[in-house]
Amino acid sequence: MTPDSKLYIVVAVLAVILIGLFAYLFVMDRKVSRIERELLQEKESKNKLKQEG
């Protein structure tokens, strides 16, 4: 693989795409985690109200 074949440009493009796709997954994972926590808190506060009432 000679440096002047510019193959490394293609590799760089693929690496950027891969990082981009994974960044997308990370963001989605964080959003789902946040909604999961919110639902859990909602449920806990409802249970508390039930016990008090």
Partner: peptide, 12 residues
Amino acid sequence: LLLLLYAVIYGF
């Protein structure tokens, strides 16, 4: 991510 980055870069 690391394994696939390695595979995509070194694989070439």
